[in-house]
Simulated assay, not measured.
Amino acid sequence: MTAPSAETPHAVLESLRAEIGKAVVGQDAAVTGLVVALLCRGHVLLEGVPGVAKTLLVRTLATALELDTKRVQFTPDLMPSDVTGSLVYDTRSAEFSFQPGPVFTHLLIADEINRTPPKTQSSLLEAMEERQVTVDGKPRPLPDPFMVAATQNPVEYEGTYPLPEAQLDRFLLKLTLPLPTRDQEIDVLTRHASGFDPRDLRSAGVRPVATAADLAAAREAVHKVSMAPEVTGYVVDLCRATRDSPSLSLGTSPRGATALLATARAWAWLSGRDYVTPDDVKALALPTLRHRVKLRPEAEMEGITADSVLTGLLARVPVPR
């Protein structure tokens, strides 16, 4: 493992966010979400219409990190073995040997993950949860760190396969990338007019600023962030409120509660504190929980969204003092 830099873990992570900004205009919430997921050993699902820099954002993160990266373009004919690897017969040795797939990397870019059928989507379940892949009954560990950064188009777009609940639950965060504001779009066009090439990030000045050792040091610092019992109770109350909501047919599971606890701690550390406040929980509630709840059909027909339900619960659940 490469030695950590001389900077503090917090300074390194701030440098990482600044480096991503050299190529991606706006999308500050998504950038922060990716950093939070790295700190929590989690995976991220990025959703947005085509052309809002989902893939560029992940590629820039990969360039700014001194980690191995591989990309898989998910298509309708992609097979599970194309992701995880398979046994190949060697005629010279008359034996089968394992050929690892692209999942054996530090950062896997799963591009347009909802363009492939559920069978191939599910091939990532074990890798994301157990950090290993089992082929022919033999578990094969993945590198550390390991993170899946998946992009998807909104489910109402043609040719998409909605991710099943079990797959969605493996993602720590679901980040939505909105269309840019007018000023941001002008900035994008100005950069392109000046010669910016999204296929050549090095020419844009994006350089590796963090190593695996830096990430490990930052994770250790996050583990030291304290959480008062009252704040822990607040997390539980929020998650339990989703199970009682009349607009939801599926509420947040205990896995979602532990995810919210983890992301709130990471956000508190990024904010320069060694303790979690209720505001930290509120800040990460939507990206951590929006994909873990399911709307009732009648609520969807009325135009209600998961975000609006969660926002209402945040306003109603008592906040500890």
Score class of each variant (00 low, 15 high):
residue 1 M to N: 13
residue 3 A to S: 14
residue 3 A to Q: 14
residue 5 S to G: 13
residue 7 E to Q: 14
residue 11 A to I: 06
residue 12 V to F: 02
residue 13 L to K: 01
residue 15 S to Q: 08
residue 16 L to I: 01
residue 16 L to H: 00
residue 20 I to E: 04
residue 21 G to I: 04
residue 24 V to Q: 00
residue 29 A to F: 02
residue 31 V to I: 14
residue 32 T to A: 14
residue 32 T to P: 05
residue 35 V to D: 03
residue 37 A to D: 03
residue 40 C to F: 00
residue 43 H to D: 04
residue 47 E to G: 03
residue 50 P to L: 05
residue 52 V to Y: 00
residue 56 L to V: 03
residue 57 L to K: 00
residue 62 A to G: 02
residue 65 L to T: 11
residue 66 E to D: 15
residue 68 D to R: 13
residue 71 R to E: 07
residue 77 D to W: 09
residue 78 L to K: 01
residue 79 M to R: 12
residue 81 S to T: 15
residue 81 S to E: 12
residue 82 D to N: 10
residue 83 V to G: 03
residue 85 G to W: 06
residue 88 V to I: 14
residue 94 A to T: 13
residue 100 P to S: 07
residue 101 G to L: 06
residue 102 P to V: 01
residue 106 H to D: 12
residue 111 D to I: 00
residue 114 N to L: 01
residue 114 N to C: 00
residue 114 N to E: 01
residue 119 K to M: 09
residue 119 K to A: 08
residue 124 L to N: 06
residue 125 L to K: 10
residue 126 E to Q: 15
residue 129 E to A: 15
residue 130 E to W: 04
residue 134 T to P: 03
residue 141 P to D: 07
residue 141 P to F: 02
residue 147 M to A: 08
residue 147 M to Q: 07
residue 147 M to G: 05
residue 151 T to Q: 03
residue 152 Q to H: 04
residue 155 V to R: 03
residue 157 Y to D: 15
residue 158 E to H: 12
residue 159 G to V: 07
residue 163 L to M: 10
residue 173 L to C: 09
residue 174 K to Y: 06
residue 180 P to E: 04
residue 181 T to N: 03
residue 181 T to K: 08
residue 182 R to F: 09
residue 182 R to Y: 11
residue 183 D to A: 15
residue 186 I to R: 13
residue 187 D to G: 04
residue 189 L to W: 10
residue 191 R to V: 07
residue 193 A to L: 14
residue 194 S to F: 08
residue 197 D to G: 09
residue 200 D to F: 10
residue 205 G to K: 07
residue 206 V to A: 10
residue 213 A to P: 09
residue 216 A to P: 01
residue 220 E to V: 11
residue 223 H to D: 15
residue 227 M to D: 08
residue 228 A to Q: 11
residue 228 A to C: 08
residue 229 P to R: 10
residue 231 V to P: 00
residue 231 V to D: 02
residue 239 C to R: 05
residue 241 A to Y: 11
residue 242 T to Y: 08
residue 245 S to G: 12
residue 247 S to P: 04
residue 250 L to W: 03
residue 253 S to V: 10
residue 253 S to T: 14
residue 255 R to T: 02
residue 260 L to V: 02
residue 267 W to I: 12
residue 268 A to E: 03
residue 270 L to D: 12
residue 272 G to P: 08
residue 275 Y to M: 08
residue 278 P to E: 13
residue 285 A to E: 07
residue 286 L to C: 05
residue 287 P to N: 11
residue 289 L to E: 04
residue 291 H to G: 07
residue 292 R to A: 04
residue 296 R to D: 06
residue 297 P to N: 09
residue 297 P to S: 06
residue 301 M to T: 15
residue 302 E to C: 03
residue 302 E to P: 00
residue 303 G to N: 02
residue 309 V to G: 00
residue 312 G to D: 05
residue 313 L to H: 09
residue 314 L to N: 05
residue 316 R to I: 07
residue 318 P to I: 13
residue 319 V to H: 08
residue 321 R to S: 15
